[in-house]
Simulated assay, not measured.
Amino acid sequence: MQQISNAAQLGQAVRAARKQAGLTQAQVALTAGVGLRFVVDLEAGKPTAQIGKILQVITTLGGRLRLDGWPTPAEGGQR
């Protein structure tokens, strides 16, 4: 498991996963349903990327987001 603490590290991790999968940025964008520019910006560590689209790309590359040390949300969406 890799620890990510900023946008640049997330971008590096996404790029490494994409290259390991043998995919181009365009292929990831098409499969994830996001624009090519988004993938380019994400891999460059642009800090304003949208979390929903980030999750689509991570899922496309076979990853998942895990938050360690956070409480589990209550069932039914209670706060």
Rank of each mutant, 00 (worst) to 15 (best):
V28L: 01
Q20C: 06
R18N: 02
L67R: 11
T31E: 11
L23W: 14
I4K: 07
V28H: 00
G52I: 07
I54P: 00
E43H: 09
T59L: 10
G76C: 09
A7H: 10
D41T: 10
A74P: 08
V40M: 11
L10V: 05
E75W: 10
S5M: 12
T60H: 04
A49M: 12
G35I: 07
E43V: 05
P71F: 07
E43Q: 11
W70I: 15
A32E: 00
L10H: 05
T31Q: 08
A16V: 13
V39A: 00
V28T: 00
E43C: 03
A16G: 00
A74G: 09
V57G: 01
E75Y: 10
P71T: 08
V34S: 01
L65Y: 10
P47N: 10
T48C: 03
G77E: 13
R64C: 05
Q56E: 04
G35T: 15
V57R: 00
K19F: 14
K19E: 15
G62Q: 08
V14K: 06
R18M: 03
L30C: 03
Q50S: 11
P47M: 11
N6F: 08
G11N: 08
L23Y: 12
T24N: 05
G35L: 09
V57A: 01
P73Q: 03
R18E: 02
T31F: 01
V40W: 11
G63A: 06
L65Q: 11
F38S: 01
